[in-house]
Write a protein that binds this DNA or RNA. Structure first.
Lengths: 204, 204, 204, 204
DNA sequence: CATGAATGAGTTTTCATTCAT
DNA sequence: TATGAATGAAAACTCATTCAT
């Protein structure tokens, strides 16, 4: 699709116009629909319609609806982890790292609210396959590593890393959901407020 | 079902034996199935089978699958709020009230894990009707009231009550889910650890 | 369906009127359609329509289209073998037994032309399951046994029993198909002619 | 395809290399697939894949799937009749002619087992068109002519020629199918045994 | 000519809901 | 009141056919 060799001027121009390619169009359509109505609540033809492709086309790109949701999960989880880990200031003080992690999660949630909802909604769905679960687990390890390191430096409370990760992740999710639902109407920079609170929650 | 007039001795005895009543049996079956597989992922005949009633019987007690999920949501949300508010020590210190609220949420989550998952999963489902949404909102008010009161007493941080509520509720949910998923394997009393952390998060 | 206990007069009468029961109606419809258009050439709703039931009803009685064709195969093969073996004159002379077998095959073919076509068409279809194949094999054993016995009495040619069975069965099928296709228009009792010929084919 | 005018040296060489031509490749692929899985059970793209051509290419050579199966039927039936009739010893004794016909049918069945299965399977398929049916009928005439001639010479039984043809053809088919299915494992030259038997069946 | 991506009509199958008993 | 067989509308999925390249 992105290989230009052998394409004449017309196909190059067309390719530029139809930009994302059908596969991505399907994934994008599925993302917003699954986030909104859930996996079982979304019919494949609806995904196709939103992606502006024929219903059969979905099955040219994905073996089944289950395969589609798994590919989508890995794409979004991968993007999330990418954003979180790229050029992270490993040498910075834990306080600064925490702030940075929170800032990146916030950016992801604000720029891709549907992706955030989708990932949250499909966390432990029974139709996620082994590969998806593995990616999920690897993502959590990232947090655990940061926590263990900061605990070793005696900056974080000596609670179980899984517990600290759970409350920070949970609190972030709570704020993000509330923000998305418009429940934080007038609040002044809720993400920053929440970040400050959660640092108090975990710091020694 | 609970009206005894016109029942002969047999039906009274039977009613006593079949204890929970068919309506509750249906709600109980729906609870565990909706918690596990979601609303759209659960077939009504499956609910009926689990409840040990005929498929048609579900429709004697509930107008439709949507009506069922709404009644169920209100039953569980009601139970949750009941547990949370009954004999709450209004005069106690905020720290003690916070601990007590957390303890009660924990008891609910541990005694009714399916109800916890169900409520979490159906928070903002599009098939919840106005009445259900209203109950959901009233529940949140409870937290807001406690927070505003404690803020007035200058015990809690002066952040937006919605933000504080979101992080506490979110953190609790995170821990409860992790516990249920078995991710907190060896952790020593994770709920208590988390409670202590979250008090630090919100206290002044 | 045929259990009368607990039925009142109305249900008994109705049961008598709706005679064959839906399951049999589906099998009957499938028989004539599969015989005519083949398995893959026949859509399930067409079977349902011919059986005068809803499309979904087919799946109340059969797990899948494949399950349906297998149950049907065993029903018809069973009927065929039943007819062939019931009260066979085991002590009669081979010539008489041969005539009797042929006569019974003919009766089956004439009374159930669709069943004959269906069995012939689905002999070795790849969607027949182990149980169906086993029944098919057991049916062939019947012929082999007769042949071996008659060979031991030095009445039949000492060729491989499988070969003798194949030519007799094949010849019968050829005649039956031709008769069904109307290709034997004026012939005078073609089955009897063929029977006489085939005895000459196998006798010593 | 076979027209050389206007082709440059490269295309001529290529044509020589791609030997069978795409049209034949498609027919060959269709033959083995239709023989194995039936007409309705075989998807056109599968035929294309097996023929190593694009799916669209099938439609350059054949108007539709039905047209394809009809062309194929006529090709195979034609080959069969060709083999059967080429240089037949018309003056030989009927016994010798019978043996020769059987030998040729056997050669066809052994050298083209898929063609044999295909022709047998599609004998009277409802999607065969008038031309195909006509060829089928002409094929039968061949046998009838031989039989009538031999009957006139008082060498064959005076039964209806259609009956004699049906049993011989049916018996041959039975043996060929059994051989193909591996059911004649140890039998010593089953075709020859069967031929001898069938001559007994029809001779006076 | 050749292709194979694209499609929508058609297939198999499921399921919310009804209704005769 | 309770049932569960029955159903048709809709779901997931397939495939004959077309068409831009």
């Amino acid at each position: 699709m992105t290989d230009v060799r052998g394409m004449n001027i017309h196909s190059v121009v067309n390719a530029a116009l139809e930009a994302p390619g059908k596969r991505d169009a399907i994934l994008d359509a599925a993302l917003s629909l699954f986030a909104e109505r859930g996996f079982h609540g979304t019919a494949v033809p609806l995904v196709a319609e939103r992606a502006k492709v024929g219903a059969g086309t979905v099955y040219r790109y994905f073996e089944s609806k289950e395969a589609l949701v798994n590919v989508l999960f890995r794409r979004e989880k991968g993007r999330f982890l990418q954003l979180l880990t790229a050029n992270l200031p490993f040498t910075a003080a834990p306080r600064e790292q925490f702030r940075e992690l929170w800032r990146r999660m916030r950016r992801f949630a604000e720029e891709n609210p549907e992706a955030g909802m989708f990932l949250e909604l499909h966390h432990h769905a029974p139709y996620l396959d082994a590969e998806s679960r593995e990616l999920e687990a690897r993502g959590m390890e990232l947090f655990y590593a940061f926590i263990r390191d900061a605990q070793a430096r005696e900056v974080l409370k000596p609670a179980a890393p899984e517990v600290l990760a759970a409350i920070v992740h949970g609190a972030f999710t709570g704020v993000a959901k509330a923000a998305l639902a418009g429940q934080l109407g007038g609040a002044d920079d809720p993400f920053a407020q929440a970040e400050a609170c959660m640092w108090e929650a975990v710091r020694l």
